[in-house]
Computed example of a mutant assay.
Amino acid sequence: MSKRVVILTGGVGGAKLVLGLMQIMPAERITAIVNTGDDFEHLGLAISPDLDTLLYTLSGKANAAQGWGRDGESWQFMDALKSLGGEDWFLLGDGDMALHVLRTRLLATGNPLSAVTARFAKAWGVDIAMLPMTDDPVATHLTTDEGDLPFQHYFVARRCAPKVQAIRFEGADHASPAPGVLEAIAEADAILIAPSNPWLSVDPLLAVPGIRTALETAKAPIVAVSPIVGGQAVKGPTAKLMSELGLGITNTSIAAHYNGVIDGLLVDMRDGDEDLSLSHMVTDTLMQTLDDRARVAQAALDLAARLAS
């Protein structure tokens, strides 16, 4: 029987790596634990950006050019909303609305987010186990030079322009891991951390009581794929954020951030000459094609297998 793999993920980079895993192993042996710190309510709707990005990517519905949202999207709802003076800083496509409306309705009638997510995955033929990190509300907030900003206002409305001083995860202290999360970690043969933003996409997961401890005590080797490529981030504000937090934009900083959690780090060949005390493997970590994604996923599993032996 093939190995059971757990991957902690959030955002576009994480979705790419999960898709890569699906090319090299049976989908039913993969569990993705997904960041929900980005979730928020907008126009009365429950929005789960990282869960949706993964759903769209794995079901073949994603906009490949931008990495998020639906392919072939239309915008009549947004046009009508703007004509009425409604908020237009967060775009909701017509097809995208179906997901948010149904999620909102199901949550309002007592269904937990994990059950709603499983229902959507099944409807779209996504065979991996997709688990939100928690069914409880957790919200990422950033302390910036423009004051306190909820994540989406920082990321979308302000396009990551404000300078970040601190990050917190409201509600995390009182949250519980979603059903299946701790069990999946305990039973895994390999655990991967996607090249998602460590501070904005992975830290919310680690802030949920029980998850960090489960990782620290897991029998499986844990490998993180570094988000750093050539001394920069491929996408998003990772490098900018690291600089603002007083950190070097290096794999040494990434390894230190995950200290006590990971056993190994997969680093890009453009940064391969960096002196790391942590076990690591060097490869080309850019994931521009489906073959690239499969190759990076295989390299991460190879490092995990080396650590296990």
Rank of each mutant, 00 (worst) to 15 (best):
257 H>D: 04
297 A>T: 10
255 A>Q: 04
300 A>I: 02
284 D>I: 02
296 V>E: 08
295 R>V: 14
236 G>S: 03
266 L>I: 02
259 N>W: 04
263 D>K: 14
250 T>E: 02
234 V>G: 03
245 L>S: 10
264 G>L: 08
237 P>C: 08
282 V>A: 00
258 Y>N: 06
289 T>P: 10
265 L>M: 09
229 V>D: 01
265 L>R: 02
273 D>F: 07
224 A>F: 01
290 L>S: 13
254 I>N: 02
304 A>K: 07
281 M>Y: 00
289 T>W: 09
286 L>F: 11
260 G>E: 12
244 E>V: 07
299 A>M: 09
304 A>D: 04
240 K>W: 00
276 L>I: 03
225 V>I: 05
228 I>E: 00
287 M>H: 08
231 G>H: 03
298 Q>R: 15
268 D>A: 05
297 A>Q: 08
241 L>M: 04
244 E>Q: 15
237 P>F: 08
272 G>H: 04
236 G>C: 05
274 E>T: 05
271 D>Q: 06
230 G>R: 08
219 K>S: 15
304 A>Y: 07
307 L>S: 14
273 D>T: 12
241 L>R: 03
298 Q>L: 13
268 D>Y: 03
240 K>R: 13
273 D>H: 10
257 H>W: 11
266 L>A: 07
267 V>C: 02
297 A>W: 08
271 D>R: 07
271 D>H: 09
303 L>S: 04
224 A>K: 00
294 A>Q: 14
230 G>E: 05
292 D>I: 13
247 L>C: 15
247 L>R: 14
299 A>S: 14
234 V>A: 10
282 V>Q: 00
276 L>K: 06
279 S>P: 10
289 T>F: 11
225 V>C: 04
236 G>R: 02
292 D>C: 14
291 D>E: 15
259 N>T: 12
253 S>G: 10
248 G>N: 12
285 T>Q: 04
304 A>F: 09
249 I>Q: 05
247 L>H: 13
225 V>H: 01
244 E>K: 02
285 T>M: 03
276 L>N: 03
243 S>N: 12
265 L>A: 07
291 D>S: 15
237 P>W: 07
259 N>S: 14
305 A>C: 04
296 V>L: 06
